[in-house]
């Protein structure tokens, strides 16, 4: 089943003063199947965050369409967009984005409280997540009292607790050391095994090698993609590294 469909996405930023225009996305089309784990890679400035922000309905494209589960999110009214985001999407950010006013537990509860779920329900959902994410110990602590890896696992819990259709992650391992990053990638793989669809932007080859598929973006366009097929993580790793080096040398078409 096709969960996400992106068609001819284009994004032009106009700087506030004067007509200086930046074309962040020129023409992006791809689709994601239910249960897939897709990594997006590309050089700095190639438009990855821009793409993710549009998918997250945090930003509007200049033109093009995005269908999530058959619904065009580009045309959703402003007044409904928050609720839509809350109900359908989960986010994991590079810098965690936890609120320092809340304990870890309350940070995780936040989307559910906003959706007006009752406490029992929230608690039971948290029970089933906290074990898997190894965050039981820190639930009552505040974000500034825990480590980066713990923060990111809490952010994952917050993304998953609404049972979203799609989890979007922008460089989730970017601020973590290699051990914590490894740990997080295992968690992503595990939840993907349970059927969670994940779209992850990353610079890390190791991170991308866990995915089912890797999309490469160059200059605002999809440049290439690698399917895992029956490859092992190591094979994936080598293939990704190779593609990236070609990409970096500005190389000719790979296909």
């Amino acid at each position: 089943m096709r969960l996400l469909e992106v068609k001819n996405l284009k994004k032009i930023y106009t700087t506030r003063f004067g007509g200086n225009q930046v074309q962040a996305l020129s023409n992006v089309s791809f689709s994601v199947e239910q249960g897939e784990y897709v990594a997006i890679m590309g050089e700095s400035g190639s438009g990855k965050t821009t793409l993710l922000n549009i998918l997250a309905s945090l930003d509007k494209p200049t033109s093009g369409e995005v269908f999530l589960d058959g619904k065009n999110i580009v045309t959703i009214k402003d007044s409904e967009i928050s609720a839509f985001r809350r109900d359908n999407l989960g986010f994991v950010f590079q810098d965690f984005n936890l609120l320092d006013t809340f304990s870890i537990q309350d940070n995780i509860f936040l989307p559910l409280v906003l959706a007006q779920k009752n406490y029992q329900e929230m608690n039971s959902r948290l029970q089933s997540l906290s074990g898997r994410l190894e965050i039981e110990e820190i639930l009552q602590k505040f974000p500034y009292e825990v480590s980066g890896g713990q923060k990111q696992r809490a952010a994952v819990a917050r993304a998953l607790i609404t049972k979203p259709k799609l989890v979007l992650a922008d460089e989730p391992t970017g601020a973590l050391d290699s051990k914590a990053a490894m740990n997080l990638l295992k968690i992503f793989a595990a939840i993907n095994h349970l059927g969670q669809t994940i779209l992850m932007v990353t610079h890390s080859v190791a991170a991308a090698s866990h995915a089912n598929r890797v999309l490469f973006i160059k200059d605002g366009e999809i440049y290439n993609q690698i399917y895992r097929g029956s490859m092992s993580n190591d094979d994936m790793y080598q293939k990704i590294s190779f593609t990236l080096s070609v990409l970096a040398s500005g190389g000719e078409d790979l296909e």
Binding site: A56, L58, S82, A83, R85, R86, F91, N97, L110, L114
Partner: peptide, 15 residues
């Protein structure tokens, strides 16, 4: 900062 995060987690801007 808080303002931004709250919006990302799905809170209405005006709210």
């Amino acid at each position: 900062e808080r303002f931004e995060i709250m919006q990302k987690v799905g809170m209405d801007k005006t709210e």
